[in-house]
């Protein structure tokens, strides 16, 4: 059965149309394929092996035996089904593509901006590229991942997206920050 849902981004109408891109930039992704994967009891190594078998998935730590999986290869509509087929009964998969919003904060002050709201040491030695963690950003729970020396990905629940962007603007008040939808 086909339903004609209206897909409106959680931040539609609240951001966008910036005059210029500044040194630090918060890019809001319009559609990101995301899913939560929880390994079945005792089957963590098997689930990890399947998830990292090819480069299709970006696996971010969420908890023991639990990951936030993103994909550039698969569409939001098909990622969960694809994971379900590959993982079988080794893990439970829940689609989050429209349940969460992904943001990318990049720029020379990215770590300093985040340090105003996140109580985790973001120095490259203790939070290197590829590391991910569920952290509290002010009062909002986000999955924070370092994707580069000067760039971080934040994934938050959809309904918190507007408050999170507001918080990040306040955190970046003494830095040069622009906010817009990502173009790709």
């Amino acid at each position: 059965m086909a339903y004609d849902y209206q897909a409106v981004h959680a931040l539609e109408g609240t951001i966008g149309a910036i005059a210029e891109r500044r040194a630090n930039h918060l890019a809001v992704h319009r559609a990101t394929a995301m899913a939560m994967v929880l390994a079945s009891p005792g089957r963590v190594p098997e689930a990890v092996g399947i998830l990292v078998a090819n480069g299709d998935f970006e696996v971010r730590f969420s908890g023991p035996g639990e990951w936030l999986v993103l994909s550039e290869v698969h569409a939001p509509e098909t990622l969960a089904a694809e994971l379900g087929v590959r993982l079988g009964d080794a893990a439970f998969v829940i689609d989050q593509s429209h349940g969460r919003v992904a943001l990318t904060l990049s720029g020379p002050d990215a770590a300093r901006i985040l340090a105003n709201g996140v109580a985790v040491d973001l120095h490259a030695d203790s939070f290197p590229v590829g590391r991910a963690a569920n952290v509290l950003c002010h009062h909002i729970s986000v999955n924070l991942a370092r994707t580069g020396a000067q760039s971080f990905d934040l994934v938050a629940m959809r309904s918190f997206a507007e408050a999170l962007v507001g918080d990040i603007k306040i955190m970046a008040r003494s830095h040069d920050l622009s906010v817009d939808f990502a173009t790709r």
Partner: peptide
């Protein structure tokens, strides 16, 4: 005490 890491790993 029992603590739950609600904003982290939720364990």
């Amino acid at each position: 005490e029992h603590w739950q890491h609600v904003a982290g790993c939720r364990r």
